[in-house]
Amino acid sequence: MTTKENVKRRGSGGIRRTRGERIGNRIIVVLLGMLSIVMIYPFWHVLMYSISDGAKALGGGLFFWPKGFSLFSYGLVLRNAQIWVSYKNTILKTLIGTALSVLLSALTAYPLSIRRLKGRRIISMYIFFTMLFSGGTIPTYLLVKNLGLIDTFAALILPGAVSAYNMFILRNYMLSLPPELEESARIDGARATTILFRIILPLSTPSLAAIAMFYGVSNWNSYMDALLYTNKLSLQTLQLYLRQVLLQTSSSNAAMTVAGKTEEYVSDTQVQMVIVAVSVIPILIAYPWLQRFYTKGITVGAVKG
């Protein structure tokens, strides 16, 4: 079959690929299938271990299914009212923080992606420099303190609001969009903000989704900011709470007894597993939703006209 014919068939609607391609595709599917099992197993292991009977799980080995069944360790982590306070704080921090971060990154990335803008290299350099050098914990703490942010919710969001890394990823994506888009819109009299919000950002959804993911995960997992900038338990974040649970079970002060049942076995390994589950599952629920934004490729040409 000649390639021209091939294209013609495609053009007429039928999806036909060469034999080599079909085989290649099947190999890829199988390969990725195996890979995904390797990737998924440890998390599965964590889940199964976390609901196993503490004493039975101690023998170790592989966990395709739970060994025995007990939710005691979940109780240890979830029965305390404080976890809901910390969940609330972390969710708020993640939602507000991520929205602010993505917005600020987009505002910064867009001008830097416009080639004719004078000084964009110097500004890029100025921002990039902060990726390599930092003042360290104490000067940053002093800054936050002087801004009056200690023990405020804003302290959980502002100090890490923009990551140069994420900003550059977005800028690079915008750079890969055809410059004609911006130019022709400008010629038509559109203002820069209009171009950004109406044309560039809609076209950048895959990259926005990617950096939103990065920001979201780092907001969700961040630890040092909450530790240093807040004192009140009412501002405690999930990671701080979980850290306390973790250290508690591995110390001689472990909480061991439960009402009416005094000899339930708790291993710190199991509590670790519960902690992973409790902190990761919300992210896993959110991730497929973000994935929506990288559906199949965009046809830029269509937007141009």
């Binding site: 902060t130 000067p139 502002l158």
Partner: peptide, 19 residues
């Protein structure tokens, strides 16, 4: 448009850099 980002980097990244 660059202003908010530059303020952020100047205040939160450069100001403590004397460290």
């Amino acid at each position: 448009l660059l202003i908010p980002g530059l303020i952020y980097f100047t205040v939160f990244k450069y100001a403590p850099m004397y460290g």
